[in-house]
């Protein structure tokens, strides 16, 4: 699609584009190129010497430690995505029924979107802090062992819970919009044909909601990979003993205080590949209209 009526001259459009181009080139592409370059370099511990080492940094991506981080990230992202999508869908279906106060429920369910990931982390940490949290106290009284400070599985579970809590509102909003776009007549037709409520959900609602669901799936994976950094950093700092270190956290941790910048850069490149793939899938299948 193009405009028929356009203005002539090319000086004005260039001037209009200058601000965005400067930011994009200086702070996006130049650092991205540097990241790729750095992934081929090895600095010694004192930063005195830098050697070009070809793909040595990438060999570490196959190390046992990094493979564990990949596995952990997959487990983490799957749990966050599945849980937040299913809880949000359940709530959206209820809110879509034309019941009294549906608008109020909507307002009461969407506000966590505005809470910063790190702040969400603090909220959940305070409830589950083993020595002083109210929920941890209740668990202790019930005899459930709980110590996310020492037990890696507990810590991972806690980080997952906080991440799910934060993401439900976003998924809820999109599911609700998707449900409301399904015409009532379709439901009524199915009901007249004698389809039960459950059957109607699986044969009418579910397929018609599939595009929304697929879109949300990719968004949630990106969220779990990238946007949960604040949650993890505020709650566990990747610990105990790396139990909550995801791929993004590992990039941050490796390069911190000028640590191993080469390894950090190689991991960044791996992440770039992942996000390019996810974005491509999103645009390929969800017809976000970027035909140019």
């Amino acid at each position: 699609m193009e405009k028929r009526a356009i203005f002539g001259g090319w000086l004005v459009p260039y001037l209009l584009l200058v601000p965005q181009m400067v930011v994009v080139l200086f702070f996006f592409y130049w650092p991205a190129v540097q990241t790729v370059w750095q992934s081929f370099l090895l600095e010694d511990a004192f930063g005195l010497r830098t050697d070009f080492v070809w793909f040595d940094n990438y060999k570490d991506l196959a190390s046992r430690e990094y493979l564990q981080t990949i596995g952990r990230t997959v487990v983490f992202s799957t749990c966050v995505t599945v849980l937040s999508l299913s809880i949000a869908l359940l709530l959206a279906i209820q809110a879509d029924k034309s019941i009294k106060g549906a608008g109020v429920y909507k307002t009461l369910l969407i506000w966590p979107y505005a809470v910063a990931p790190a702040v969400a982390g603090v909220l959940w940490l305070f409830m589950f802090q083993p020595s002083l949290g109210v929920v941890a106290r209740a668990m202790r009284n019930l005899g459930i062992p709980w110590n996310p400070m020492l037990n890696g599985n507990h810590a991972l579970l806690l980080v997952i819970l906080a991440s799910v809590w934060k993401q439900i509102s976003y998924n809820f909003l999109f599911f609700l919009a998707g449900l409301q776009a399904i015409p009532r007549a379709v439901h009524e037709a199915a009901a007249i044909d004698g389809a039960s409520r459950t059957r109607r959900f699986w044969t009418v609602t579910f397929p018609l909601l599939a595009p929304t669901g697929f879109f949300l799936l990719t968004v949630n994976i990106v969220y779990a990979f990238f946007d949960t950094f604040g949650i993890i950093d505020a709650m566990t700092g990747g610990g105990p003993s790396k139990a909550t270190e995801t791929l993004v956290y590992s990039v941050f941790f490796q390069g911190r205080l000028g640590g191993n910048l080469g390894a950090s850069a190689a991991q960044s490149v791996a992440l770039m590949v992942i996000i390019v793939a996810l974005t491509a899938v999103q645009f390929r299948f969800i017809e976000r209209k970027v035909t140019y």
Binding site: F27, F28, W30, V251, S264, S268, M272
Partner: peptide, 14 residues
């Protein structure tokens, strides 16, 4: 496709 997370340290250095 270039969120800050994948180019942290070079951007910081600039």
């Amino acid at each position: 496709m270039l969120p800050v997370e994948v180019r942290i340290y070079p951007t910081y250095k600039i």
